[in-house]
Design a protein around this nucleic acid. Structure first.
Length: 308
DNA sequence: CAGACGTGGTC
DNA sequence: TGACCAAGTCT
């Protein structure tokens, strides 16, 4: 491991201490095994967008068993992708991942691209995911900044209790400045900082006694001040269109093929809100109408016959 | 740039 | 019990 950490990173540098801690304490997550493909890593990163690790692990394994390559997924229907997604949440991610697989086949001959520019052009792949794939699958030196990294850097370097709600260019710069020069060591350091934020430097109840950079943490040095105010708007769910969409999709996911609207009507009493939620699912490419009175998951069966 | 977008676990 | 939180992306 000394070779990976490299000469440019000293034992006492921030990245060096976190990386050594990571080598000893990292969770044994399946997508971190050395033999996993770039596609498997991409799938894990998409699933991990806003979904906890414990729920992703079994879904990731089942998904890759069924679709080990982008071409395999592209050969199935979007409906099957939505079903396989199960209850991970934000099912539009399943549709985007299917679109992503198709784009990888069409634009890159079925191989996950290794250039940031090409990764960013894929559906469902944004700033975080593109950099995560470039770094973790291809060993490139890019700052990989998610909510964990922002929180760790914000606390340890700036001494502030919490980072902003979104990743800004300044966050990428701040993270990049912590990375060692050698690409493989930089990728390791990014994974290590993320892990630190996930299991030690958590949003609630951080475990500073277990932290490898506790001695130089600016936030701890200033007495771990609490956030000034509410850092972000609460995300309500009960009674929202999102809840209704979830209920509608639950019915369509369990069914095979078209579902009469009468069955969908039973999931929510408010006609206006239910209709709006269903229309939203259609607009977002998750659901399609079949004839005048039924709906189904997108691509769930043969195309509707065209008049003429 | 604020808001939409699922789901389930924790304190 | 309800608010908060979990490896974001897109519009």
């Amino acid at each position: 491991m000394r070779d990976i950490i490299g000469d440019a990173m000293t034992e006492t540098s921030f990245a060096g201490r976190v990386s050594r801690w990571y080598e000893q304490h990292a969770r044994d997550l399946p997508w971190r095994r050395p033999e996993v493909s770039p596609w498997a890593i991409l799938v894990s990163e998409v699933m991990l967008q806003q979904t906890p690790v414990v729920r992703v692990v079994p879904a990731w394994q089942a998904w890759l068993e069924r679709w080990p390559t982008p071409a395999a997924l592209a050969g199935s229907s979007p409906a099957e992708a939505i079903r396989m997604w199960g209850r991970l949440g934000y099912p539009r991610r399943a549709v985007r991942l299917h679109e992503c697989a198709t784009a990888i086949v069409e634009r890159h001959g079925g191989a996950v691209p290794d250039r940031l520019e090409h990764l960013l052009a894929l559906p469902g792949v944004g700033t975080y995911t593109a950099r995560a794939v470039a770094a973790f699958a291809y060993g490139q030196r890019h700052p990989v900044v998610d909510t964990n990294v922002r929180r760790v850097v914000c606390r340890a370097v700036a001494g502030e209790p919490d980072a902003g709600p979104t990743t800004r260019p300044a966050d990428l710069v701040a993270a990049e400045e912590l990375l060692p020069a050698e690409p493989a060591a930089a990728a390791l350091a990014s994974a290590a900082i993320m892990e630190l934020g996930a299991v030690v430097c958590t949003a609630r109840s951080p475990r500073c006694d277990a932290c490898p950079v506790e001695s130089t943490c600016a936030w701890r040095a200033s007495g771990r001040p609490a956030p000034a105010g509410p850092t972000r708007r609460p995300q309500r769910y009960a009674g929202t269109d999102r809840q209704v969409r979830g209920l509608l999709l639950g019915v369509l996911r369990e069914a095979t093929g078209p579902v009469p609207h009468q069955r969908l009507d039973q999931v929510w009493a408010d006609d206006v809100q239910r209709a709006r939620a269903l229309a939203g699912l259609v607009t977002d490419g998750l659901v399609e109408p079949v004839g005048e009175t039924s709906f189904r998951l997108i691509g769930d069966g043969p195309p509707a016959p065209v008049a003429g």
